[in-house]
Nucleic acid binder design. Structure first.
Length: 879
RNA sequence: GGGAGCAUAGCUCAGCUGGUUCAGAGCAUCUGCCUUACAAGCAGAGGGUCCGCGGUUCGAACCCGUGUGCUCCCA
């Protein structure tokens, strides 16, 4: 077979993904093996794959593939989230493009369109995950609005309602005037914004002409003012006790109240109270019995209650009212002001605090076991652990969760009302009617219809059940899958949704199943561009991931997102990483081509004693790295793990090992060496496979003919062995020798082709005998001989405590100044080094306090340095 | 305002329990090579006041305090 010079990814990726999938390797059913389970953070049905998904899902895939090789029954559950606000917005837009207004449409019809939209576009992101190579158990694909899932959400609502944890009430909520729905606190993003602070004076109701000046950034809310508040100890306003003033333009007479809440230093020290549109004002109004005037419509225009500007947008009014205040003489001044403004996470509209009737979930009880599990018992581990603090802080200050949304796409709130406003919460309409009939038989007989609540539940009110419901909790909480796979092992997610999702899943797990949903949570970083900016559509700095996969291959994309992404740190994405990944795949590919080329040149019975050292050394390196990698992956240090294997393959295997065992041109190779090389190669491929599944599977199969079912993805990792420390040490010495001689050649313009003769003055001749053929080949020495005498007319160098003399045709007249300088530099360094150890060992307190092994080590270092200095001095004397 | 975190080579970061063969890696840079697996490569090399200051300690990149600069979360 003719092998191309570089790895061709496109065909190989399609081929292997199909093969894995069709062979059922992704499929999991409970068996006697221990499970390793991950549930995917379900992407929005509206989603398309972006860098964040790539990182997140690559990490999960690495964990899954690695666990599979360790003998676990791995199960990675895919699925999507119905994402009520985002999806509804998409459908509304689609309808608008079709010339249809949502408002003119009944709910059922809208939902029909929504489902059509979901069927058509909802699966795109899952297809894209296939391209990335994700080993997902597709038969388990779930959706948060599947029938069973829907029922589970309704059931949970009922259970919490019956426990008294869910209630209906009027409270100040975050109102998104664009989506026309309430948002939870978590869905509001606060951003520092440049605003104006307007000073406006309100006339006091008294005989004399007197005013009180307030400062506000939202002058349009003046129309909803029902009071003015000052600090009780503020002498400037003490005389206003019991007085009233007039709201400008509309002349509403409102009281001046006194409360310690007021910050005397801020503005004028006087605060206008707009209870309907500010949470703090609302609280003050409640305390002081002030009325509430809601001046806003649901779309952010002024309502009738505002009296003025009715129907005009709040931001238009903000400008208009300033002009009108100027005209009326109430305007004092304006200042530039920077403040935090809340924006909707979904629509980016400026949030209006608004009083409204919503459904709430009391969190006080739910929080307790969830807090304990993470913070006290550490039953659930967070990686990195720093997020424990964030979690603890939030859980400690949690408030009730606003769970109703004024939307149609989602789980409709299972609450029904009779004509008198009576409320019936039930799992089904029938059950609600039964309640009604039992409670109000007369009314029910006359007016049997009940009206269901129009709102749906917050999307997160369904996602919090994800780890349990994907295994069919609602239908049978004692089913085989749930018992086997739950609690899941690891959750991999972004720190941004620690409150939205992670915390609530933990609460739901304990509340409804009495068990945690997962053992460990691994928080990935946020993907940023080279300049450290978050990737976003508006900045246009988000690369086209699918094109990237096409151009470079999924392996390379995976490589590039993992390599710079230490646990919990942000990931700065740069094209240079793509190149590095591509080069690495190519490196492995070419190593394969080299080894593959030996296949026909194998001979049995060849003397391979001279390369035995190379093989033993490579085995020891493999054993070392296997051990390290196991630890790193267990600690989620995935990027470090990849770097470690990268270096093992590129440096140890390709640059050293293959060069050491490589036969001369057209020369035969020992069958034994060939077989061991293949075995080593296979193990290397196996270590990288979780990171780069496609290229490794492809090479694995080209390297050797495989029987059906012998696929890399399935190979089990060998048991860890302890590496031979002496061989590792010898390997380092050999590398050091080779590098030192090559460096010397370089510095003395000795061409690689010029053969040299090497004299060695060492008391470890056995070592040189063991590696001499390798050494000869690597430094192009015709001969290596031992000596105890300095050799005249050679270049002398020192490696560790051995003296080497390089003799070549051209060495006689070579300039040794540079070398001399280097040696003198080394000498100074080692003398200083020795002196510092000497001082330390001479320090009584050190000898008393330091651990014995530390002292022992210092003594050894001292002796080594001493020997080294002696050697250098001897060599210097020669020059 | 409350909380969390970061500062080490030009860049991105390691450095896990304090112990100079521990100041490291990758990328980038420089020098020399088209050596028959790979120029998407090979062989070498250079590069650092471990943010400033103070303290603890026999010993500090590491622990403590403080200053400066930056980031994130919450109100």
């Amino acid at each position: 077979m003719e092998l191309s010079k570089n790895f061709q990814h496109n065909e190989a990726e399609l081929k292997w993904y199909a093969h894995w999938n069709e062979s059922g390797y992704f499929k999991s059913v409970p068996d006697e093996r221990p499970p390793y389970t991950i549930v995917i953070p379900p992407p929005n049905v509206t989603g398309v794959l972006h860098m964040g998904h790539a990182l997140n899902n690559t990490v999960q895939d690495i964990l899954i593939r690695r666990a599979k090789m360790q003998g676990y029954n791995t199960c990675w559950v895919p699925g999507t989230d119905h994402a009520s606000i985002a999806t509804e917005a998409k459908v509304v837009n689609m309808l608008r493009d079709m010339g249809i207004d949502k408002k003119t449409m009944p709910r059922d019809e809208f939902l029909k369109y929504a489902w059509q939209w979901k069927e058509k576009y909802g699966g795109i992101i899952l297809k894209q995950l296939e391209k990335l190579g994700c080993a997902l158990d597709w038969e388990r694909t779930s959706f948060t609005m599947d029938d069973d899932y829907y029922a589970a959400v309704i059931r949970v609502f009922n259970e919490l309602y019956e426990k008294g944890l869910i209630y209906r009430g009027v409270k100040m909520i975050n109102w998104d005037p664009k989506a026309k729905t309430a948002l939870s606190d978590e869905e509001v993003i606060h951003r520092q914004t440049n605003s104006k602070l307007y000073y406006v004076r309100y006339k006091i109701d008294s005989e004399v002409e007197e005013y009180i000046t307030v400062a506000t950034v939202r002058p349009e809310t003046i129309l909803g003012d029902t009071g003015v508040c000052v600090h009780p100890e503020d002498e400037r306003y003490a005389h206003l006790k019991g007085k009233f003033c007039f709201v400008p333009l509309i002349n509403r007479r409102v009281p001046i109240i006194f409360d310690e809440y007021i910050d005397k230093e801020f503005g004028t020290g006087a605060l206008k109270i707009t209870p309907a549109h500010d949470i703090n004002d609302y609280n003050l109004a409640q305390k002081h019995g002030l009325p509430v005037v809601d001046t806003l419509n649901e779309d952010g225009t002024m309502s009738e209650a505002a009296q003025l500007y009715i129907g005009q947008d709040r931001f238009v009014v903000r400008k208009a009212i300033v002009e009108d205040l100027k005209t009326s003489g109430n305007f004092v001044k304006e200042e530039d002001y920077s403040n935090q403004v809340g924006f909707s996470e979904r629509t980016d509209a400026v949030i209006e605090p608004r009083l409204s009737m919503q459904w709430w979930c009391n969190m006080q009880e739910l929080v307790k076991p969830a807090l304990k599990a993470v913070v006290e018992d550490e039953e659930i581990e967070f990686h990195p652990a720093k997020f424990k603090n964030t979690y603890k802080h939030w859980m400690g200050t949690i408030r009730d969760w606003c769970i109703s949304r004024q939307l149609w796409w989602g789980q409709r709130i299972p609450a029904w009302y009779d004509l008198e406003g009576g409320l019936y919460v039930a799992q089904t309409s029938e059950a609600a009617h039964a309640q009604y009939a039992a409670k109000k038989p007369e009314l029910a007989a006359k007016h049997p219809e009940l009206r269901q609540d129009d709102d749906v539940l917050d999307t997160w009110f369904s996602s919090w059940l994800w780890p349990m419901e994907v295994f069919g909790w609602n239908k049978d909480p004692n089913n085989k899958d749930l018992n086997y796979y739950y609690p899941t092992n690891t959750l991999v997610t972004a720190p941004e949704i620690i409150f939205f999702w992670v915390a609530r899943m933990i609460m739901a797990g304990y509340e409804f199943l009495g068990k945690k949903p997962f053992d460990k949570v691994y928080f990935t970083g946020i993907v940023r561009d080279k300049q450290g900016r978050k990737m976003s559509k508006s900045l246009g700095n988000s690369p086209d991931l699918l094109k990237m996969i096409d151009d470079y291959g999924a392996d390379v994309v995976r490589f590039s997102v993992v390599i710079t992404s230490p646990a919990g740190n942000d990931l700065l994405f740069d094209d240079a990483q793509l190149e590095q990944g591509r080069n690495f795949c190519n490196k492995m590919w070419n190593a394969m081509r080299l080894v593959k080329g030996w296949e026909g040149r194998c001979q049995k019975g060849l003397d391979d004693s001279q390369v035995k050292f190379a093989m033993d050394w490579m085995d020891a390196r493999l054993a070392t790295v296997s051990q390290e990698l196991t630890e790193m992956i267990a600690e989620f240090r995935l990027s470090e793990g990849l770097k470690t294997i990268y270096s093992l393959i590129w440096n140890d295997f390709c640059s050293w090992y293959l060069e050491w065992v490589k036969p001369g041109m057209e020369q035969p190779i020992s069958k034994n060496v060939y077989d061991r090389t293949i075995a080593i190669f296979e193990q290397l491929l196996q270590l990288v496979h979780p990171y780069l599944p496609f290229v490794t599977e492809e090479i694995y199969h080209i390297l050797k003919d495989r029987v059906a079912g012998d696929d890399l993805i399935n190979r089990q990792l060998p048991v860890l062995t302890t590496p031979d420390a002496q061989i590792l040490k010898d390997g380092l010495m050999l590398q050091e020798l080779i590098t030192a001689v090559r460096d010397t050649r370089n510095k003395n313009q000795l061409k690689p082709k010029d053969q040299i003769k090497l004299w060695v003055d060492s008391d470890n001749q056995a070592f040189y005998n063991k590696v001499q053929d390798i050494l000869k080949k690597q430094i192009n020495a015709g001969e290596i001989s031992f000596t105890t005498e300095p050799k005249q007319g050679t270049i002398s160098i020192v490696v560790q405590t051995d003296k080497l003399y390089i003799e070549a045709a051209a060495t006689a007249g070579i300039d040794t100044t540079a070398q001399k300088l280097q040696m003198e530099k080394d000498l100074v360094y080692y003398q200083g080094f020795m002196a510092s150890i000497d001082k330390k060992l001479g320090n009584e307190r050190f000898v008393q306090n330091a651990k014995p092994e530390v002292i022992e080590n210092e003594r050894k270092k001292y002796a080594d340095a001493q020997a080294k200095i002696k050697t250098i001095e001897e060599s210097l004397a020669l020059l």
